[in-house]
Amino acid sequence: MTMDAPSDHLIEIRGLAYAHGARPIFKDLNLTIQRGKITAIMGPSGTGKTTLLRLITRQLIPDRGVIFVDGVDISMLNQTNLYKMRRRFGVLFQNGALLTDLSVFENVAFPLREHTRLTNRLIRHVVLTKLHAVGLRGAADMMPVQLSGGMERRVALARAMVMDPDILIYDEPFVGLDPISMGVIVRLVRRMNDALGISSILVSHDLQEISTVADCSFLISDGKVAASGSPAELNQTSSELVKQFMHGMADGPVAFHFEAPDYEEQLLGRDAE
């Protein structure tokens, strides 16, 4: 099932199609995520970036197409092997998703307590190190409800790192962070990626931050990869769609408005009565 030599391709997606109810999200998506790099996935809101993360981690199952993680087709895994694979992932959820009945310390310790037989002393050591990395060692005894949104996400980041995963997935890591913690987190993402040799996938709208941190980015639009390359390359591109996205223009191939009936018709027409 596994390929012998580790290739550069960590995650390969071929011909992916997925529909949310009747609304198709991906039509024929192909992309390859390189090992040891920071890969950004960008796109206008509603293009299914979070859905893509859920497909990669098999929380959702594609309608068509295959997803390989390290050469293994993840749709073929049984639950034991799926859980084994998921232990290699660290995922930062969009809203943190901390366990609200546990303290900050216990939240970060949770994967260790579930999966390892480390002594309390050692767990304490590991957890405090990770909390220190996100600047929240002092908040260890607080409960998640006492934290601000940004702090919650930093705790969630510490939790995602605690098992030393091979692959870190960040869903909108920069939302709700003040400029100081944003700078720290960006450097942290970069440093972890390089020092520990892990691969990172991050979904974000934050062009500025992405261009400082990402090695490679994919712009997704209309269910397909619209453009790919390093952020600098994307900036130079001539494609209308990429230009519109990179420069934040309202007019262009991507419609700002969600599909709707004619504006004038709806306001003044027969519907109004």
Binding site: Q59, Y83, Q94, R159
Partner: peptide, 21 residues
């Protein structure tokens, strides 16, 4: 509420079975 706030998905992603835990 744990489901609505993604806590159960987060457990799934930490390879912890929420039914069991």
């Amino acid at each position: 509420l744990m489901k609505a706030t993604d806590q159960l998905s987060a457990m799934e992603m930490m390879a912890v079975n929420p039914i069991r835990r």
